[in-house]
């Protein structure tokens, strides 16, 4: 307690700089955003209270519901594929195979490249493939854009999750695995009864990271298809952005969509964490 009392009056020096920046960049914009979602406005100063009408407009907007459905489908598929591949790779790379460090580096690298650049890289490749195979464009069908985005995200995120899973594998006490081997456990029962429960902590983290990143995905979506064709491959973040900046006089509705988006992400993350945390066991 003495340290506490000693530095207590130093708030201005230690906490204030961060706190001021936090007020400017988060607290004020967040509060204003919440308030503006209940108003009609164009420049903020002209805001007029309109109750929940923006929310009604948002929830009856077909394009918004479509983007919600797109984001959900995309997130479910990507969370599963990214984590399954990352888990399998991590398992292989902890098995004393030659060159693991090099492989790990190669798989990790795409993660450092930004979403915009990745989107254009994959745009080039997928357009080239589709042209060669079907003489069609990436924007020809929403399925192309959807599958393309899933491939892109797998390519980008697998390495990152793999690194976390590798650390998880290295933290499993050796005697647990040995005991399973001595008992003669076969591969699949061992995987589901021993390995996966022992890895539940890493699985929680990786599911959380992939889930929130996929739900919030913007850059890759914008650069790969920009929602084409017909906004059918538009995710939530992109839909909100466009409602703000491309449609006329829809700022209030856009802000209401943003609030719904935020609540949705928070609720999904909360339940995911609760569900996977409850599966965690101690060695």
């Amino acid at each position: 307690m003495r340290v506490s009392a000693y530095i207590k009056k130093w708030f201005p020096a230690f906490a204030l700089p961060t706190f001021l920046a936090f007020i400017l960049a988060f607290i004020v914009p967040f509060g204003m955003g919440l308030y503006l979602s209940f108003t009609k406005f164009r420049t903020v100063n002209d805001a007029q209270w309109t109750g929940v009408s923006n929310y009604v407009a948002a929830l009856t907007d077909g394009s918004f519901l479509n983007s919600l459905w797109f984001s959900v489908r995309f997130t479910v598929i990507s969370v599963i594929t990214v984590n399954v591949f990352a888990f399998a790779l991590a398992m292989l790379l902890t098995k004393a195979i030659r060159g693991t460090n090099l492989f790990r580096a190669v798989f990790f690298l795409p993660n450092l490249i930004g979403g915009i650049v990745l989107g254009y890289v994959w745009n080039l490749i997928l357009t080239g493939i589709l042209k060669a195979l079907f003489a069609q464009d990436l924007t020809y069908s929403a399925t192309y854009g959807f599958v393309g985005l899933v491939i892109l995200v797998n390519w980008q995120m697998i390495g990152y999750m793999m690194v976390i899973y590798i650390a998880g594998f290295q933290n499993i006490p050796g005697d647990v695995m040995e005991a399973a081997d001595i008992d003669g456990a076969a591969f699949w029962p061992k995987l589901f009864r021993v390995t996966i429960p022992m890895m539940a902590g890493s699985i929680t983290i990786c599911t959380f990271l992939t889930l929130s990143n996929c739900l919030k995905m913007f850059d890759q979506n914008l650069a790969l298809t920009s929602g084409a064709p017909n906004n059918e491959t538009e995710g939530l973040a992109l839909n909100i952005y466009r409602t703000f900046y491309l449609l006329r006089n829809q700022q209030g509705v856009a802000q209401a969509k943003a609030v719904i988006f935020f609540v949705f992400v928070a609720v999904v993350a909360f339940f995911q964490l609760r569900a996977t945390r409850s599966q965690e066991v101690d060695a």
Partner: peptide
Amino acid sequence: SMIVPFQMVMFTMSKV
């Protein structure tokens, strides 16, 4: 603040 998506504060932050 860590779970809040950028779109939630995007418009108002640019105003600020």
